[in-house]
């Protein structure tokens, strides 16, 4: 019998084969290109002040959409369409199904977000963004993937729209509040780690820890739910 991680890699492969035969990847590439268009347009108009901050706002919106498109829809559809019956009737630990999807989709989400960030900052300023901001966007994307996994395993039928709604109407608004509630926001922690927004005084390490804690909580919710789900 395969080990759990070996199984996760097979599921990751299966997930990627399916993904690249669908339209989601191409749609997401188009969405990821929007901040680049925005930055280029702003630069063309000669407005250069706080370019990185403006682009980062755009990137947080991207974070609300891309991981949900990949992770929440993949997990939600499998549960809702009952294709999980093929997986769960095999000698496959439940956690490895989740791990396989995350191993396939989280790096892809992170790569798209980071690629979009680098390209849009370069398009707007003709300079490369800081390494810390790249790290922040990558870990932020992975954290939102874990949020997506948690929400999709709780509400498979509406996993993608609910994740987007959660990010747009809870995480992003709470993240800009000047109170400690902002610590619950992935996008706030991302900004703290990125050190791009001058108004945020938190240390980068605090942002990194915050992202790790929030990601772990959502991963725990997803694992707990997947373990209990019946097909």
């Amino acid at each position: 019998m395969r080990s759990g991680w070996s199984t996760a890699l097979v599921i990751a492969q299966l997930t990627l084969v399916r993904l690249f035969r669908g339209r989601a990847v191409w749609v997401s590439v188009v969405i990821a290109a929007l901040p680049i268009v925005f930055a280029s347009a702003v630069r063309a108009q000669g407005q250069h002040s706080n370019m990185q901050v403006d682009v980062l706002v755009f990137q947080t919106l991207l974070l609300a959409v891309l991981p949900a498109m990949f992770v929440a829809s993949s997990i939600g559809e499998d549960i809702e369409d009952r294709t999980t019956t093929y997986l769960w009737s095999r000698p496959v630990p439940r956690w490895s199904v989740l791990a396989g999807k995350l191993v396939a989709l989280a790096p892809l989400s992170a790569a798209l977000v980071v690629g979009s960030w680098i390209a849009s900052v370069f398009a707007g300023t003709h300079a490369m963004p800081s390494g810390l901001s790249i790290l922040a966007l990558a870990t932020g994307a992975i954290a939102v993937c874990l949020v997506s996994a948690g929400i999709a395993s709780l509400v498979p039928k509406h996993g993608m729209p609910l994740t987007i709604a959660y990010m747009l109407f809870f995480d992003i608004p709470v993240g800009v509040m000047p109170v400690s509630l902002a610590e619950l926001s992935v996008t706030h922690q991302l900004r703290a780690l990125a050190q791009v927004v001058p108004e945020i005084r938190d240390a980068p390490s605090g942002g990194a820890i915050g992202l790790a804690v929030l990601g772990t909580i959502w991963l725990g919710i997803a694992l707990w739910r997947i373990r209990r789900l019946e097909a």
């Binding site: 019998m1 009952r82 294709t83 009737s89 000698p91």
Partner: peptide, 17 residues
């Protein structure tokens, strides 16, 4: 998990990848 290695299941529904 191990005992499922000995089981082969074809579901009633048609949904697959």
């Amino acid at each position: 998990v191990g005992v499922r290695r000995r089981i082969g299941y074809a579901p009633e529904h048609d949904k697959t990848w």
